[in-house]
Write a protein that binds this DNA or RNA. Structure first.
Lengths: 329, 329
DNA sequence: TTGAAAGCGGTACCAA
DNA sequence: TTGGTACCGCTTTCAA
């Protein structure tokens, strides 16, 4: 591999000059520049990211921290982030936090050490202090699906509450009168927001009852169990709003086994809009703009990295109601 | 952040000595070592990966190239790779190749440049030359789901043909007599292997007919279309072996729409054993040990990185038949 | 057993 | 506009 020195020799200039044309910084004569570029070309020279980052520049690497890439929501996010990053010449390090603060700290250490330029955090367990700490080390950070209103941290979030409202209203429109909710883990902010949206509409219609709510785990299994419990308490349930699509799938299974036909007996709607909601019957859902979130997060991150002005607030994204078979007779 | 020089000063030794204790290389007096460790401790010193890799050591980073992390097979693989790597102090860069040779080359360039220690390639479009080229730059490589018998490249593969045989035999056992196959893209090796396994058994039983085979794309959509075509030609199909689970889900939808009950009218089996085959009815499948593949690949890669002896051949992994609802009355 | 010093491949400041 | 050169933080001969 050719080095900057090889280039400088071939072009008969100093390394400083070569560095200048590489970075388009400082003055450099057109003729000289041409010569340098020529030399780079013939040596098929590529500056070493390693060396650049050591010398204080950026590493052209960002990290994406997700709870678990196995959850189908995150591959979609990862894909969008990776695409956007790659387009900008960045490389993405993937981290699975498993909601484990210990593991998270561990990652943060590794990443700091690697002089990562920035981090996108889609893990619910981080503490705002950790992000601020990063920023102090001039590592940019963007948070997804969480927010820290009292800290200068850029966050991205779907309109969870509004989405929940849309979901429940949709079930009401379809004629449901006994609507249950399978919530996500309540220590997770979006779960609480969705629950709140549900509660809001139910109270509006005088239909609210705590026993219509069961807490799941954002996984198929938890949705399944929650649905079973709910059916035990309320065999007359005719509408279910699940806090995410995976739990909706679990609920679907439970309903199927209980002999309830979807959507004839029970209408079911999820949240997220993950691609694999391609089950039979197809799942109605509140779709988050996952890909857009990833793209936006990456762009905001880049802005921070380049010290361009960005508002460090929570940016909210619109969700859409996707009506499919599970709520349509 | 403390540097090696800070440590050396505090411990009253040279940086060389500190380096020695860090790397456990060369001789160093016990007392001195203790002092150095003490100093590292009090400064909570962590050596910079950047600097180390620049100085010629390893970057403690590997890359995983997949066609598309959106395909549920790959998150499982990625998760296993990341876990194994993380445990060994390595960081994983994720790349989506999209089967695009151009993009692949691009990634290879970036990765070489970043002095990545090794690459796990689960992309079907790479050329063996590219891998050899890497090895020449002393970047380790392991290939998944592909193999290059005539090159010294370490590969990992499931027993695709055997798996296909198991699948078809299972359908026969269940009493199927008209068994169709939805194959993956035939330019992909595992697709061909699975097709071969299917063909083998069908011929054995004098049931083979080319029109019972339709080519899909490894995605839900392609499985759906292929199933529709097959039904047109053979309304009497009573068994389907799909080349992967996603296509099986597509087939399931097509069957459902065509009014065929699964498993009563048609028995259906997939391949891969991805977690989200949790549709209703649950899909029978030939499960690949995806997590194990990821783990093994990572370990083999590490071996190569550390110049430990490894056989650069294709290692084959066993698959298992998972009987679930889609083939059980 | 230890230390001095020459890189690794760049960046950037200061002179020329 | 250019070039010289001192780093960035660590590894690794080579001598002492």
């Amino acid at each position: 591999m050719a080095t900057i020195r090889d280039v400088s020799k071939l072009a008969n200039v100093s390394v400083a000059t070569v560095s200048r044309v590489i970075n388009q910084s400082g003055y450099v004569n057109e003729v000289t520049e041409k010569a340098v570029r020529q030399a780079m070309e013939t040596l098929s020279y590529v500056p070493s990211d390693m060396a650049r980052s050591l010398a204080g520049k950026k590493s052209a690497t960002i990290a994406l921290i997700v709870p678990d890439i196995l959850n189908p929501f995150f591959p979609e996010l990862a894909r969008a982030v990776e695409d956007a990053a790659h387009q900008l010449g960045y490389t993405v390090i993937l981290c699975n936090s498993d909601h484990d603060p210990e593991k998270e700290r561990n990652y943060f250490g590794m990443l700091k050490n690697k002089r990562i330029d920035g981090i996108i955090v889609a893990s619910y367990t981080i503490h705002p202090q950790q992000l601020l700490e990063l920023q102090r080390q001039s590592i940019a950070a963007v948070v997804i699906d969480n927010h820290f209103p009292s800290h200068p941290i850029l966050a991205l979030q779907s309109k969870n509450r509004e989405g929940a409202v849309m979901a429940v209203r949709h079930l009401l429109d379809r004629g449901c009168t006994t609507i249950a909710h399978i919530s996500g883990p309540l220590e997770i902010l979006p779960s609480r927001e969705r629950l709140l949206g549900y509660e809001l509409v139910m109270r509006e219609h005088g239909m609210f009852a705590p026993s219509l709510i069961a807490e799941g785990d954002f996984h198929v299994e938890g949705g399944y169990r929650a649905m079973q419990e709910l059916l035990k308490l309320h065999p007359d349930i005719d509408g279910v709003f699940a806090g995410n699509d995976l739990m909706a799938i679990g609920a679907l299974k439970a309903l199927y086994i209980a002999g309830k036909a979807v959507p004839q007996d029970v209408k079911l709607i999820g949240f997220d809009g993950i691609a694999l909601a391609t089950v039979v019957p197809e799942l109605s859902t509140i779709a988050q703009p996952i890909a857009e979130m990833g793209k936006l997060a990456t762009h905001y991150l880049m802005r921070q990295i380049r010290n361009e002005p960005v508002e460090c607030k929570t940016h909210e994204l619109d969700v859409r109601l996707l009506v499919r078979q599970s709520t349509t007779d």
